[in-house]
């Protein structure tokens, strides 16, 4: 039951964040600080979520590190999201065969 409550809160907040601006606002944001903050927030969120959690994502720090390295290299060379994501898993899996 608690899980249902969590999901209800998640879904409501996520929906309202999308729906309120889509229905109410039509003005562009004028404040340079606010628009800069909103521009940087996705990158900051993803970085904070990824580091250090990615190293604990496979159950072994070693295989996770190998997967991370593969992802970093491929992302650096602008590979598509899916290629990077699946290559990280493939590299972690391959490393797992040797650990």
């Amino acid at each position: 039951m608690k899980t249902a409550l969590y999901i209800a809160v998640m879904a409501s907040v996520t929906y309202l964040v999308r729906a309120i601006p889509f229905t109410v606002f039509s003005q562009k944001i004028k404040s340079r600080f606010v628009s800069s903050f909103l521009y940087y927030i996705p990158y900051a969120v993803l970085a904070a979520m990824t580091v250090p959690a990615i190293f604990y994502s496979t159950g072994s720090v070693v295989t996770a590190a190998v997967g991370t390295a593969a992802a970093v290299v491929l992302a650096y060379f602008n590979m598509p999201l899916i290629v990077v994501a699946l290559a990280a898993a493939a590299a972690a899996f391959a490393a797992g065969l040797f650990v």
Binding site: Y43, A47, A71, L74
Partner: peptide, 24 residues
């Protein structure tokens, strides 16, 4: 389990693919 363990990194791999090119 080896495969699902490895798949645990997929989402984070995608996050890296989103942040690294613009960071570069």
């Amino acid at each position: 389990a080896e495969l699902t363990d490895a798949m645990g990194i997929v989402l984070y791999g995608m996050f890296l693919a989103i942040i690294i090119p613009p960071a570069r």
